[in-house]
């Protein structure tokens, strides 16, 4: 019955949905570079940044939305609302923030906000039309958080593009990411330097266009 409902939704949804207004979500673990990528996209197409970035995890603790981003590539056009989400984690310890020189009071506030951010990011999963999963290519891709996010998107039938970010770093290993998620396209980029962004936009058209 559920399958039949999904089929009907897909057929009729595609007929009446304005395909050009896609809600594009950036998901992934903390410090993977989601906001750096969001900033890169916004800089490329709007000439402005979206949010602040930091080396300390959980810098983005609220959902941030940039509306009406219009991208063009090889005669194709796509307009979407970009949703930058807080990093999804299974643990948050304020003492981790203390190591970065943060005051205890501020660290506790940050931890509290970060937990709320994770909850919001999960709640928003259902609202997405397409998701870009941003992974740090220098880190182990086999973390359960990554697998859980991908599995949930798969179960919800939401198209996914996986980005192996931080390819400018020596330790980056795109092959490991590809091995971990062989059923998806993985594009290696450096959001910070703008490396390989053309291929990224092409990949975006493929999954969301």
């Amino acid at each position: 019955m559920q399958l039949f409902r999904k089929f009907i939704q897909k057929v009729f949804g595609n007929l009446f949905k304005k395909k050009k207004h896609v809600r594009l979500g950036l998901y992934g673990p903390p410090n993977g570079g989601k906001t750096t990528l969001a900033n890169r996209i916004c800089q490329d197409w709007l000439g402005e940044e979206m949010g602040t970035v930091s080396n300390i995890a959980h810098e983005t603790r609220e959902i941030q939305i940039k509306e009406q981003i219009n991208i063009k590539s090889k005669g194709k056009e796509l307009t979407f609302n970009l949703v930058d989400t807080p990093g999804i984690a299974t643990k948050i310890d304020y003492e981790d923030f203390l190591k970065h020189g943060m005051k205890e009071k501020d660290a506790k506030v940050r931890a509290k906000e970060a937990t709320k951010g994770v909850i919001d990011a999960i709640k928003w999963l259902d609202e997405m039309d397409t998701v870009i999963i941003v992974l740090d290519a220098t880190k182990d891709p086999y973390s359960q958080v990554n697998i859980t996010i991908v599995g949930n998107l798969q179960a919800r039938d939401i198209p996914v593009l996986i980005v192996a970010n931080k390819m400018d770093l020596k330790k980056a290993d795109i092959k490991r990411v590809q091995e971990a998620f062989p059923q998806y396209d993985v594009i290696g980029i450096s959001a910070k330097n703008g490396q390989n962004m053309d291929q990224f936009y092409e990949g975006l058209f493929t999954v969301a266009g």
């Binding site: 999804i88 299974t90 643990k91 948050i92 937990t115 709320k116 994770v118 909850i119 999960i122 709640k123 999963l125 359960q144 958080v145 859980t148 996010i149 599995g151 949930n152």
Partner: peptide, 10 residues
């Protein structure tokens, strides 16, 4: 699994 993460955060 996602609900478990959500509840953990709560």
């Amino acid at each position: 699994e996602t609900e478990l993460i959500k509840r953990t955060m709560e």
